Amino acid sequence: MTLEREEHWIPVDGGESLHAWVLRRTDLTQPAPAVTVAHGFGGLAEGGLLRYAESFAEAGFVAVLHDHRSFGLSTGWPRQDIDPWQQIHDWRLVITYLQDLPGVDPDRIGLFGSSYAGGHALVLAGSDPRIKAVVAQIPTISGYEQSKRRLPTPEARKAFQERFVADERARLHGADAHRLLLVSDDPDVPSVFKDPRGIGLEDRFPVEGEMLHFDHKVTLRSSLKAQMYDPGVWIDRISPTPLLMIVGLQDVVTPTDTQLAAFEQAGEPKKLITYDGDHFSAYDDHFKETGGGARDWFVQHLAPTATH
Score class of each variant (00 low, 15 high):
210 E>K: 12
219 T>D: 05
7 E>S: 13
99 Q>P: 11
175 A>R: 11
136 A>Y: 01
200 G>K: 08
241 T>S: 04
114 S>A: 09
133 A>Q: 06
151 L>D: 03
269 P>L: 06
98 L>I: 15
22 V>M: 13
45 A>P: 01
128 D>C: 09
178 H>A: 15
99 Q>L: 06
9 W>P: 08
250 Q>E: 13
41 F>D: 01
228 M>W: 09
123 V>Y: 03
91 W>V: 04
59 A>N: 04
59 A>E: 07
283 Y>E: 11
227 Q>N: 15
135 V>F: 00
287 F>N: 05
279 H>C: 10
249 L>H: 08
255 P>C: 04
79 R>F: 01
109 I>C: 05
274 T>G: 10
226 A>P: 00
100 D>Q: 15
143 G>F: 02
128 D>I: 04
298 F>H: 03
303 A>G: 08
33 P>M: 05
61 F>P: 07
144 Y>W: 14
40 G>W: 01
194 K>L: 11
220 L>H: 03
251 D>N: 11
74 S>H: 04
67 D>P: 08
28 L>R: 15
25 R>N: 02
58 E>M: 07
91 W>H: 15
31 P>D: 02
124 L>D: 00
112 F>K: 02
37 V>H: 00
56 F>V: 03
37 V>S: 01
169 R>Y: 03
106 P>M: 04
169 R>M: 12
281 S>H: 08
123 V>K: 02
82 I>L: 12
103 G>T: 06
208 E>S: 13
224 L>F: 13
228 M>D: 13
2 T>M: 11
18 L>Y: 02
257 D>T: 13
263 F>L: 02
187 P>R: 04
305 T>S: 14
190 P>W: 01
131 I>Y: 01
113 G>E: 00
137 Q>N: 08
67 D>V: 06
91 W>P: 03
111 L>E: 00
199 I>K: 13
91 W>F: 15
22 V>Y: 00
129 P>Q: 09
299 V>W: 04
180 L>Y: 03
261 A>K: 14
292 G>W: 03
117 A>Q: 02
282 A>G: 12
197 R>G: 14
183 V>S: 10
263 F>P: 07
255 P>F: 08
144 Y>L: 15
224 L>N: 06
65 L>M: 05
67 D>L: 04
6 E>C: 06
57 A>V: 08
80 Q>T: 12
216 H>E: 13
87 Q>K: 05
219 T>W: 00
153 T>E: 05
109 I>D: 00
68 H>L: 05
97 Y>P: 04
277 G>L: 07
38 A>T: 11
10 I>Y: 07
57 A>G: 10
211 M>S: 12
104 V>I: 09
153 T>M: 05
61 F>G: 04
154 P>H: 09
38 A>I: 06
205 F>N: 06
66 H>D: 06
199 I>V: 15
113 G>D: 01
195 D>R: 09
281 S>I: 07
66 H>I: 07
54 E>A: 06
194 K>Y: 11
180 L>R: 11
